[in-house]
Computed example of a mutant assay.
Amino acid sequence: MMEKVCCMRLSTAGVVLGWIGVVASFIGTILLATILGNADVIAKSILGNMTDGAAKYDEIHMGLIVSCSVYLAIVVLNLLASGMLILGTMKERHLMLLPWLINSGVGLLFSIIYHFVLLILALTSAQIDRIVPVLIVTLIGLGLHIYIYCGIYSLFKQIQLTREQQQPLINQSQGAEVPNQGNSYPSYTKI
């Protein structure tokens, strides 16, 4: 288990990464909503800049709408997961970190698949001098993503362990205050 992420305690790193995710997702939501609102103008502009007449306006417009809608859904899910990461870290609730871990894990899986395909293209292509620099830069990003994921997973395990250690203490002290009343429901009498 890690003790620190980017020279920060795990709880601080969880809050900082959560806020970075919230701000980035909020900006992405605004940008994608603006693109969807102006999809007609953007599609006409793309069609006007194309030299060959291979694509039609409807195809460009539909592709723009579908891709932006899918990406908007992903960005909104990331916004919610980052918000849950902040709340889970601050309230020390390990289950609230799960949406971020699942969301980031799926993104990490797609990133690994992307890098594997890019590596295969680099090995089979004659344009290896163009693909290798992109591959190096994206592999650095993948390494950072894995490092951050391991840090938040360590935070998840740390909070889970702390809560499991505190739970028996809470259960034992409840019955000690009132000797005749344990963990049962109170009894009421009708008047």
Rank of each mutant, 00 (worst) to 15 (best):
M1P: 10
K4H: 12
C7H: 05
T12D: 14
A13W: 11
V16L: 05
V16P: 05
G18E: 10
W19Q: 08
V22S: 01
A24L: 14
A24I: 11
A24R: 00
G28F: 11
T29N: 14
T34C: 09
L36C: 02
G37V: 06
G37H: 06
D40G: 05
V41R: 02
V41I: 00
I42K: 01
N49I: 03
T51C: 02
D52I: 02
A54N: 07
A55I: 14
A55V: 14
A55W: 14
A55E: 14
A55H: 14
E59T: 13
I60R: 01
H61C: 06
H61N: 09
H61Q: 09
M62H: 06
I65Y: 04
I65L: 00
V70S: 04
V70M: 02
A73M: 04
I74Q: 02
L80K: 01
S82T: 08
L85I: 02
G88L: 05
T89P: 09
T89C: 13
L101N: 05
I102G: 03
I102E: 00
N103H: 08
N103E: 01
S104L: 03
G105W: 01
V106M: 07
G107Q: 08
L108Y: 01
S111Q: 10
S111N: 09
S111M: 14
H115W: 06
L118Q: 13
I120N: 01
I120V: 14
L121T: 01
A122M: 15
A122S: 13
T124S: 12
A126S: 10
I128E: 15
I131N: 13
I131Q: 13
V132D: 08
P133F: 10
L135A: 08
I136S: 06
V137Y: 01
T138M: 05
G143V: 12
Y147M: 10
I148F: 11
C150P: 03
F156Y: 08
F156E: 06
Q160A: 07
Q166H: 13
Q167H: 04
Q167S: 07
L169W: 09
Q172M: 11
G175A: 12
G175C: 10
A176W: 06
E177I: 15
V178T: 05
P179G: 04
N180R: 04
N183F: 15
S184T: 11
S184N: 12
S184G: 10
S187L: 09
Y188E: 00
